[in-house]
Amino acid sequence: MFLPDAPLPDGLFRFIALDVETANRDAASISQIGLACVRRDGGIETFSTYINPDQDFASFNTELTGIDARTVREAPSFAQAWRRMLPLLSRHLMVQHSNFDLTAITAACRAAGLNGPKMEWADSVKIARKAWPEFRGNGGHGLGHLKKALGLEFHHHDAGEDARAAAEVVLLAEERLKCPIEDITGKIKHLQLAFEF
């Protein structure tokens, strides 16, 4: 169910993990965006919104996510949701679990006539590979395997839940490697990068 008045997290966070779900094979067909905002104390504030992609839903995607045209009927368009989230996202280091999320956001921006996101991104798959090299060839570094291997509890293929899981992977990797995400990835902390419409 879409909750139009759900507040976005507010403030300055260490980093924000983002995950998307799509309606079909078109990367621009985003049907849900989830955020997990990591506070300085390690706490996580989450936000999730359905998106009306104005596209048909493939049965495979609906079976995977549980999202269909009825779910998103009253949800905002990508452009509406992205403009709302951008002031928060643009001032933080962003985390995605693989490159799919940035690819989808870029495609959705292009389809909506918006310039692509000018933000700094880190990949929690690459972070997990550094922290747990023993998983290579032994289950891998996808969220499905990490859920079992690291004892994470989340509902896979829900954007909000997957974003939180990606954030937890980073926090566990920081603990294991004994250094912050910025040292693991070489990214600059809290970049103030603009987004151009």
Rank of each mutant, 00 (worst) to 15 (best):
P7L: 12
P7A: 15
G11C: 02
R14W: 08
F15Q: 01
A17L: 02
A17V: 03
D19E: 14
D19G: 07
D19V: 09
T22C: 12
T22W: 12
A23F: 13
A23T: 03
N24F: 15
A27V: 05
A28W: 09
I30K: 00
Q32S: 15
I33Y: 09
I33Q: 03
G34Y: 05
G34H: 04
C37A: 15
R39M: 09
R40M: 08
G42I: 11
G43H: 07
I44C: 07
S48R: 07
S48P: 01
Y50E: 13
I51H: 03
N52E: 13
N52R: 15
D54G: 09
Q55P: 04
F57N: 01
A58Y: 13
N61H: 13
T62M: 10
L64A: 08
L64Y: 05
L64P: 03
G66F: 10
G66K: 07
D68M: 05
R70D: 14
T71G: 13
V72S: 11
P76W: 00
P76Y: 00
F78R: 02
F78A: 01
F78K: 04
Q80H: 01
A81S: 15
W82G: 06
W82S: 06
M85F: 02
L86M: 15
P87M: 06
P87A: 11
L89W: 13
S90W: 07
H92N: 04
L93M: 01
M94P: 13
V95T: 01
S98M: 00
D101Q: 06
L102Q: 14
T103G: 14
I105Q: 09
T106E: 12
T106K: 13
C109Q: 04
C109S: 10
R110N: 05
R110E: 14
A112L: 08
G113T: 13
N115Y: 09
G116T: 14
P117K: 09
W121G: 04
A122P: 04
A122Q: 09
A122L: 02
S124R: 09
W132D: 00
W132P: 07
W132R: 11
R136V: 08
G137F: 10
N138E: 04
N138W: 11
G139F: 11
H141K: 07
G142S: 15
G144I: 00
G144R: 01
G144N: 10
H145Q: 04
L146Y: 06
L146V: 03
K148S: 12
K148Y: 12
K148T: 10
A149L: 05
G151V: 02
G151P: 08
E153N: 12
E153V: 11
D158T: 01
A159D: 00
G160C: 06
G160K: 05
E161G: 00
E161L: 02
E161R: 11
R164G: 00
A167M: 05
E168R: 13
V169C: 03
V169F: 03
V170K: 02
V170S: 03
L171I: 13
L171M: 15
A173T: 08
A173C: 11
E174C: 05
E175Y: 09
E175A: 15
R176E: 11
K178A: 15
C179Q: 14
C179R: 14
C179S: 04
P180H: 02
I181S: 03
I181E: 06
D183C: 07
G186Y: 07
Q192M: 08
F195Q: 14
F197T: 05
F197L: 12
F197Q: 13
